[in-house]
Design a protein around this nucleic acid. Sequence first.
DNA 1: CGCCCTCTTGATCTCCTTCAATGACAGTGG
DNA 2: CCACTGTCATTGAAGGAGATCAAGAGGGCG
Lengths: 245, 245
Amino acid sequence: MPNYPLTRFYGQATLSAAEAELLSGLGDAEIMFRRQSVIRREREPVDAFYLLLEGWASSAIRLPSGQRQIVKVHITGDMMGTPSMVLDTAADTLTAITECRVAAVPLTRLREVLARHPRIAALFFMMVQIERLALMDIVAALGKSSARERMVRLLLDLHDRLAKIGAVENACFDLPLTQELLGDVLGLTAVHVNRTMRLLEREGLIARHGQRIALVDIERLHKISPVPPRKVRFDPVWLPVPGEM
Amino acid sequence: MPNYPLTRFYGQATLSAAEAELLSGLGDAEIMFRRQSVIRREREPVDAFYLLLEGWASSAIRLPSGQRQIVKVHITGDMMGTPSMVLDTAADTLTAITECRVAAVPLTRLREVLARHPRIAALFFMMVQIERLALMDIVAALGKSSARERMVRLLLDLHDRLAKIGAVENACFDLPLTQELLGDVLGLTAVHVNRTMRLLEREGLIARHGQRIALVDIERLHKISPVPPRKVRFDPVWLPVPGEM
DNA sequence: CGCCCTCTTGATCTCCTTCAATGACAGTGG
DNA sequence: CCACTGTCATTGAAGGAGATCAAGAGGGCG
C-alpha cells in the first residue's frame, strides 16, 4: 500500500486519523515512470485517476492543429487525471516530466469512498473547486496579461505549491521544465520564453543556474503578477463535520 | 420555493423523484436582477452560491491592472459562484447580462445535503469536474489558437449549451453580449471581436441581425474549432447508486 | 569523439492592439 | 416632435508584442 503524501489536504481541513489512513492508502501498488513517458494518454478509456507520490508531471491537451497546451503542472502529492472521470475517454495526456512514482485509484474504489464517507467526498469536492479556481486564474492571465506577467505568475504559483511540500529553500527551487514545456504552459513559443526569462534575470527579479531557479525579489514579483494569491478557507462551513460521517 | 430547472443534471445521471425535488427546491426565495447589476461582487465574504433560474450572467475576475476577464458566461439553469465556496472572499464578480432571476443557496444548507445525500454530493462533484474541463478547453484555446478559432469555439459552446435548455432553433439563438463583453471572454479587444465576427460573416459561417446569431455552417465551424466537443459519461461507474444513499 | 537536445540571440513578419472617427439607434427631456 | 446624450457597431491607420525563421554555442550521453 503506497504512502500518498497528504500535503494537499492539510491546508484544507482537519483530518481524523481514520481519514488520513483511508486517504493515504487509497491507491494501488506504486508504479514508476521514466522521464518523458506517458502515464495516461488522451482518448484512452478512463477507469482510474492517479496519485502522484513523487515527481513532476504534466497534464496536456493536444489540439487538432497539432499544438499542445499544458493545462497543469503536477508536483508531488497532486491528484492527476480526475477531470476525465466524467468522460468516457480521457481529455488530457499525463506525462512524466521527471521520473515519477504514481499510484492508480480505480474509479470503482472511489465510489465506495464517496458513498460511505461524506466528509472525504466533500474534501474531494473542495479540492476540485480549488483546481477550478486555479484554472480561472490561468484563464485571466492568458486572456489579459503579457508574457512577462504570465511568467511571473507561473513562477510564484510553483513557488507557493512547492513551499507547501517543502521543496523550496531560500526562495530557490528546482524547475525541471524545458523552455519549450514552459512555452506550452504559458501559451508562448520557447524562443519567447527564453527572452522573457532573460529579461526577468536582467531586472534582478530571478536568478538561474541550470534547473535551479531563485526568486530574488518576491515582493516585486508579487506586484507584477496579474492575479493575486488566493487564500483557501480552512474547514469551510459547508464541510460536513466528522460527527456527521 | 423557486423552481430551479434541472437541465444541468439531466445529461449527467438518472435522478429519482426525491432527488429532483430536493434539487429544484434548494434555493431561497427568488430575486430579480436588472441588466448590468451585480449579483455578488469580488472580495465580498462568501456565504452562499447561486442558482440562475433564468437569464444570462457573467463570472468575471478583475485584475490589478484594471482589466477584466470573463471566466464563464452563465445561462439559465447554471450554478454560479461555487468556486468561491472554498475561499473567505469571493474570487469572481457575478453580473447580470440580461435581467436575471436568481436563487441563493446558503452554504450551511449545502452542508446538510452533502452530509445526508452522498449521491447528490457526487453529482455536484461531477458538475464541478465538468466545469473544470470546460476551463481546461478554454485555456487550450486561449493559449494556442487565433482570434477566429477562439470565437468559433465560443459560439459552438454557447450553441450546445443553449440547445440543451431549448433556446436554439434552426442553429439560431440570442446572444445578448456586447462585443466588448465578448472581448472580455475571448481575451481580445472589442475592435478585434468586431473584425473577427465580420470575417466569419463574410465567410458564410455565421449570420447576424441584432442580437440574433445563426450558425450557418456548423459542419465547417466544427472543423475550425480548436477543441473537440466533449461527451459527458452518463451515470459514471464511480457515482454512488441510489440504493447506497 | 560526435550527436542531439536545449539555450541563446538576431532579423523579419504578422496578428492583434491602440487610437481615432463615423454612423446607427434607443432613451430622455424640452 | 425633435435636439441631446450615451451606448454600441463599424472601419481605417499606425504601432507593438510575440511568432517565425535561422544560426550558433554549450553540454550530456552514446
